[in-house]
Amino acid sequence: MLVAFLTVPLLAGSAFAHAVAEGDKGYIQEITGINLLPFIYLGAKHMVTGYDHILFLLGVIFFLYRMKHIGIYVSLFALGHSTTMLLGVYFHLGINSYIIDAIIGLSVVYKALDNLGAYQRWFGFQPNTKLATLIFGFFHGLGLSTKIIDYDISPDGLLPNLLAFNVGVEIGQLLALAAILIVMGFWRRTPSFFRHAYTANVVMMTAGFVLIGYQITGWFVS
């Protein structure tokens, strides 16, 4: 069941990672002033449709069972994501979108390998998973800020609108996390969980490599 869910990014195409829909793009470019509710909606929509976010979150909580631990890791990701998204747009700190999206793909690969115990087997040590979650959260936020900068958001009401967008992102993250936890909760109760956990993480890692390859190719041909 979960393996089928993980294959969606491979079929959907990597072009939509961190993308903002064309209709939303036009709306962002046209409106001025403070528009809190629309930006909350746009932020939530971005998170629940951003499969790169969802894949990374899935990888982070894959083997976490206690809500306390889940809360710590999700909060670290939210802190990193929110910080660079807000600062990146406010101070107009854009990064090449192909490079940042390739790094985001790398975050998915990193977490899948971590779940597979690859670092302990290959290098004999375990990376600091909390620090890695925070750092990759920074990159996920930069990915979104880069897209927003490209859409020339109006400076009129910029800070309130960005804060509203970030609130929406966090709402969307909670909704996505709730859906993941429900699915994982049912799956973990079945005998197939540990039998198919390896395959699920390999599929997740493959999705990350597809995103990396797509973005690197786009960087060279653009």
Rank of each mutant, 00 (worst) to 15 (best):
L2E: 03
P9S: 01
L10C: 05
A15L: 08
F16K: 05
H18T: 08
A19E: 09
V20K: 02
V20I: 14
V20A: 04
G23C: 12
D24E: 08
Y27F: 10
E30Q: 13
I31P: 02
T32H: 13
L36G: 00
L37P: 05
L42M: 12
D52G: 02
H53R: 02
H53P: 00
I54T: 10
L57R: 06
L58I: 15
G59R: 08
F63E: 07
M67C: 11
K68N: 06
H69R: 14
V74R: 05
F77H: 01
G80P: 04
H81T: 09
M85W: 12
G88K: 07
G88R: 11
V89T: 05
Y90W: 14
L93I: 06
S97C: 13
S97M: 15
Y98I: 15
I99N: 01
D101Q: 14
I103A: 08
I103G: 01
K111S: 08
A112S: 09
L113M: 13
G117H: 03
Q120I: 15
R121L: 13
R121A: 10
F123H: 06
G124N: 04
Q126S: 10
N128A: 06
K130V: 15
L131H: 06
L131T: 09
A132G: 03
L144K: 01
D152F: 15
P155T: 03
P160Y: 01
N166K: 03
E170N: 02
G172A: 15
G172M: 12
Q173P: 00
L175H: 03
L177R: 01
A178V: 08
A179L: 11
M184F: 14
G185R: 04
W187L: 14
T190K: 07
P191K: 05
F193V: 02
F193L: 07
A200I: 06
V203L: 10
V203W: 09
M204H: 14
M205V: 08
G208S: 05
G208R: 09
F209A: 05
L211P: 00
I212V: 14
G213I: 14
Y214D: 09
Q215S: 15
T217V: 14
S222M: 10
S222D: 06
